[in-house]
Design a protein around this nucleic acid. Structure first.
Length: 185
DNA sequence: GTCCTGATCCTCT
DNA sequence: GAGGATCAGGACG
């Protein structure tokens, strides 16, 4: 992988514009990453804050692996693990700009509006067909899910993170400025 | 468009 | 037993 994942906050910005691809039995889906959030073990909003557990163990492994979690009783969200093993860092992928497999994404999402396929962390996981099966996979060509170099963002906007209740002061959300596929708010 | 709520279940307290 | 890195649908205007 050519993307620098040594630090979550920097990696969250480096990952903007990268291409995420999933080759599934139903076909290929892919998209450019347009919105991310950084999480680290010193951060009370992070799953890794209270130390390693069975659920978050992937976050404490090497960088470049996929951490998937299940939340709110019905949704999956995906992270790219960053940092050194033992550090417990990750970057939440919050939105994609769809590239390949638009019909398949629409089927999985049961939505036809292009802008409603991948503009949210649980939406993109559903559109890409990602779930707990994919937790812990390396994001390279040895897996069905991987990252490639994509586009260079023209501008990056920094804000506070969405939907958290602790450490809300951190400005650790990043998105490609003016991209129409960024989640709301 | 905005606001509010129900859905639904795993994880940790 | 509570709460969560969310989303969709309905009420209202």
């Amino acid at each position: 992988m050519e993307i620098d994942l040594s630090n979550a906050v920097e990696a969250a910005q480096n990952l903007l514009g990268a291409k995420l691809v999933h080759d599934s039995p139903e076909g290929r889906t892919s998209g450019y990453i347009v919105e991310t959030e950084a999480y680290s073990a010193e951060d009370a909003a992070s799953h890794s804050y209270r130390g390693q557990t069975e659920r978050n163990a992937v976050m404490f492994g090497p960088a470049g692996y996929l951490y998937v979690y299940f939340t709110y009783g019905m949704h999956y969200c995906i992270n790219v693990v960053t940092g050194q093993p033992g550090h417990g860092q990750g970057v939440l992928i919050r939105a994609l700009e769809p590239i390949e497999g638009l019909d398949l994404m629409s089927q999985r999402r049961r939505r036809s509006d292009l802008r409603d396929l991948t503009n949210g962390p649980a939406k993109l996981a559903q559109a890409m067909g990602l779930n707990m099966q994919h937790k812990g996979l390396p994001l390279d060509r040895t897996s069905a899910v991987w990252l490639e170099p994509g586009i260079s963002p023209k501008g990056i906007t920094t804000t506070s993170r969405i939907g958290i209740t602790r450490d809300t002061h951190r400005q650790w959300r990043f998105y490609i400025t003016d991209n129409p596929y960024v989640s709301k708010r």
